[in-house]
Amino acid sequence: MIFTTREDIEAPIDFVFAQISDFAGLERSILRRGAEVQRKVDRIPHAAGMVWDAAFDLRGKRREMEVTLVTFESPSAMCFEAASKSLNGDLSVDLVALSRGRTRLSMSGELKPQNLSARLLVQSLKLARGNMSKRFEMRVASYAKDIEDKYTRRA
């Protein structure tokens, strides 16, 4: 199951990349939403190979995943891989400079079931695909708007 969306942000690509690669801020945001996240492997400066343990509730069940940053190409791309016992996933984030002060953010995520129970979970998500896609797009749009607001407050 694949989710994709893109948003145009009124901010330079370097600023947008700095915001989406602010892993400490993203970890705090995830914790506020009720999930658990802990960095296992850190790289200073940020680079591929960073690893997080994450735990969250999905469809009434606690899910635990290990998330790895597999690609980190400043200021244009990041790719993450998530792995658990029953479900794997990929998330890619791409940035394209449309002009000096405008950036296109593209996000694509894919869920890959590894066993029968995960296939049932993904199948139930597919049945609600329209609603799930809309929620994904709204969440990314809200995130893009937050980045824009930070840039305008800074300027």
Rank of each mutant, 00 (worst) to 15 (best):
G25P: 12
K150R: 14
M138K: 14
I147M: 04
S86R: 11
L31M: 04
F15M: 15
I13P: 01
V96P: 00
F23V: 05
N88Q: 11
F80I: 04
D42C: 09
A24K: 07
M107K: 05
D94F: 09
V122R: 05
K145H: 04
I147G: 03
S108E: 13
S29K: 12
K126P: 03
A54V: 15
Y143T: 11
L87I: 03
K134E: 15
S29D: 07
P45E: 07
L91K: 04
V140E: 00
A11M: 06
P113S: 03
S124H: 03
G109N: 06
D14M: 03
F3G: 08
A144K: 00
A77T: 11
S124C: 11
L58S: 14
E36Y: 11
M132G: 08
L58F: 04
H46A: 06
M78L: 14
I30S: 01
P12C: 10
A54W: 03
R129S: 15
I2W: 06
V122T: 12
L121Y: 07
S106C: 06
A77Y: 05
G60N: 03
R32Y: 15
A55H: 09
A118H: 01
S108K: 15
E27C: 06
A97D: 07
I2V: 12
K112W: 07
R28I: 10
A141Y: 02
R100V: 10
G89D: 07
G130S: 15
I13G: 00
E110L: 14
E7D: 02
L87Q: 00
D94N: 13
S86V: 08
Q114K: 15
A24Q: 13
D22V: 10
I20A: 13
E7M: 09
R102C: 08
S124G: 10
R100E: 13
Y151V: 14
N131K: 13
G101F: 09
M1F: 06
A48P: 02
T4L: 04
V70R: 02
E81I: 10
I2Q: 11
R32P: 10
S76N: 09
F136D: 01
W52L: 00
V93Y: 01
S133P: 00
R28H: 14
M78P: 09
A118M: 12
R119D: 05
T4N: 05
R104C: 03
A18P: 03
M78Q: 12
A141M: 01
N88W: 07
S99Y: 08
T5H: 12
F136V: 13
S133Q: 11
R129G: 11
E73M: 12
R100C: 10
D149T: 15
R100H: 08
R154P: 05
A118F: 02
L98K: 12
S142W: 05
N131G: 11
Y143Q: 06
E27D: 13
V37Q: 01
G109H: 03
M65D: 00
I20G: 02
E148I: 06
I147W: 04
R119Y: 07
D8L: 14
E137P: 05
A144V: 05
V96E: 11
R32D: 10
E73D: 10
L91P: 02
A77G: 09
R62Y: 07
I20M: 08
D94R: 10
F80L: 14
F17I: 08
S76A: 06
F3Q: 10
S106Q: 11
A35L: 04
S29L: 07
V37F: 02
R129T: 06
R43S: 03
D42R: 15
